[in-house]
Design a protein around this nucleic acid. Structure first.
Lengths: 154, 154
DNA sequence: TGAAATATGATAATAATTATCATATAATAA
DNA sequence: TTATTATATGATAATTATTATCATATTTCA
């Protein structure tokens, strides 16, 4: 029943976004929903290929990319783009658009003085932290809204 | 004078960490300190190669890696490792060790209910956010502390 | 200064990701 | 349901970022 719900919700979410619902997408989404590890594309592929022998790694990559762009999943440590470096040790945060990938800096005193949870304790020695806000930049939001309207009209 | 300070501070920091102070490291560090963009390794290299014609891209990579491992700079979007994906939409944060790269999840109610700054306003539509705490895991901290003691003895 | 340690440059190798394109599947209209 | 159209897939080639290698050069420190 849990599985059923995930499938239904996923199917509905795909419809809303105008995405075809395919075996491969269902499989990848289910697999990712069933684990707490943060698997790589390769790992997802390895996990599924026994059950779906014709599945391609390229499809897994494309599927994950589609999911991420549609907000179904999140991508930790985006690759494919180059790593970016910063010598600015002033605490600052990032506004990252999930569609165009643009990164903007955000300075905010309150956000830079967060109290760290006690639970971290001696398990981890925190030196700094950074908040990544993910969503849509003004430009991509506009495009997104327009598409949504268009879909509702049809 | 500003430049002078940066050089002095950098040199001192290298000494503390037992790193050789080289032309290349100075150049890369100065370049990164002088910009607010978050350049890629390639971009740093392109910027410097006129002034330092013998500089190698491989050196820039190695230098940036060394800086990051020593906490001089930060690396946004770590690559070299695979991207990792997560279908868990429950707000959670990350504890990332800057030495061994291990990522652990952190759940904390307070950290997941942060008020967003007004300044963001209509410029960006935030859908979610994630805090990356960077520092040393227990194991790497131990090794780090031991090395420090050793260096002070010498 | 001179020996030992460390870093660099050139380049090869690797690993992750993306592009291409013919085929297959899904969505939609009749 | 079936035909048509749009979209996704699989196989594989190509690309891109990054790391490894190793001989040479530079730093460090006694």
């Amino acid at each position: 029943m849990r599985t059923k719900n995930i499938i239904d919700e996923f199917t509905e979410a795909c419809r809303e976004k105008g995405l075809s619902v395919t075996q491969q997408r269902l499989a990848v989404y289910q697999e990712l929903s069933a684990t707490e590890s943060h698997p790589t594309a390769e790992e997802v592929y390895e996990k599924l290929k026994t059950q779906y022998p014709t599945l391609s790694l390229a499809t897994v990559y494309k599927t994950l990319d589609t999911f991420e762009k549609n907000g179904f999943i999140s991508k930790t440590r985006a690759t494919g783009e180059s790593a970016r470096f910063d010598a600015n040790r002033m605490p600052h945060h990032h506004l990252i658009c999930r569609v165009c990938g643009k990164i903007e800096d955000l300075y905010d005193r309150a956000l830079s003085q967060l109290a760290l949870p006690d639970s971290v304790g001696s398990e981890f020695h925190v030196e700094e932290y950074q908040i990544d806000f993910r969503g849509l930049c003004r430009k991509c939001k506009k495009i997104n809204d327009e598409n949504h309207v268009k879909e509702e009209k049809v």
